[in-house]
Design a protein around this nucleic acid. Sequence first.
DNA 1: TATCCTATATATAAGGT
DNA 2: TACCTTATATATAGGAT
Lengths: 207, 207
Amino acid sequence: MAPPQGKKKSQGRRKIEMKLIEDENARTVTFSKRRAGLFKKATELSVLCGTQIALIIFSLGGRAYSFGHPDVESIIGRFFNKNPTATVPESSSSSRYRTAMLQEMKEQFDGKSQELETKKKRGKEIEAALESSSFHTTDEELDGLDFEQLRQLRGKLVKMRDEMRRLANANAYAVANVPPMPVPMLNLAQVAKSRGASMIPSDWLKL
Amino acid sequence: MAPPQGKKKSQGRRKIEMKLIEDENARTVTFSKRRAGLFKKATELSVLCGTQIALIIFSLGGRAYSFGHPDVESIIGRFFNKNPTATVPESSSSSRYRTAMLQEMKEQFDGKSQELETKKKRGKEIEAALESSSFHTTDEELDGLDFEQLRQLRGKLVKMRDEMRRLANANAYAVANVPPMPVPMLNLAQVAKSRGASMIPSDWLKL
DNA sequence: TATCCTATATATAAGGT
DNA sequence: TACCTTATATATAGGAT
């Protein structure tokens, strides 16, 4: 409480060499901070300029963090298909990516459900993030979701699921590694349960 | 040299609303600046923490800008294959992405060769970027490449080409949209010619 | 591992060239 | 469209909790 005289509390930010940070601890901290900063910058760019952006980061621990506007899948599809003008090409390729993305999200949700109970929630800017059509899948952001937001996210997933089914029926291609059917079920029930949820309408837990 | 009295030359950076920039001109400028900043941040993160990162941005004009460490293809492959530990999974899927990436690079090079002669070069931090195994494919950075750097890049491409051939022969899968053979030829000769090159050993222009 | 705080290092919005 | 300058908004390194 007492003012520590002229004693500076910190030397403030210092310049660092642009090379691998040796100290494993410092490296982890820097990774977390800069990863957050990078996602923020990417989000801002997509908002300010309305451009399509995809960002994927793998942590040292092997965890994947991603951001996509409007979503990672369509950006990647566009990148490899070299289709500069199409929003989302309704091709077999598109449906393949769509399927892969849905599976991705399912697994992320399943994985999250096991970790959620040991983390506190923070969600502040999540609302805005959800309002745009972007998808954030970082730990922090999923942690910040409250039930209302979770409900909104569920709505989006349902739409995607339906859209995917429509595509799968329209053109049933046999794609390597990704069987066209059945449609993966999102385990929102588990997620909700891990939060100690009890006021969730039981019917909308089933997609 | 003389202090311009108390007349401020600029009001300096001002805060802006986080929403789509209406003025098309200002939006373009902001896009360029922030895109550059985002790529720099991504590069720094990959260097400081040695993590795998992929970043893809589409400009309003439809041009694709990408960054990947070690390369976009492997990050995306890992992302969709959900293979957290493997460096580069030697699967059919991997070879598909590999092929797609090589084609991508070929097209980028071909496209660049037509623009290069009307641009000046700047390359300063390119050297460092090339030393790492990262690939930058933004306009500015390709412009900055000098012959030595181009030669180094060629070396990498040759390695990739060979690796791709090895994979293609080891497991010849029929992949949708991307015929496994023949291997696309990179048109380095065109690139060199557009720069007014004449001292390039004719033999290494052929991959 | 996340968060807070301080003091700096950087990124950039505007306005010119 | 790119680059330079100025003044300010942000991002963060280091340290502590």
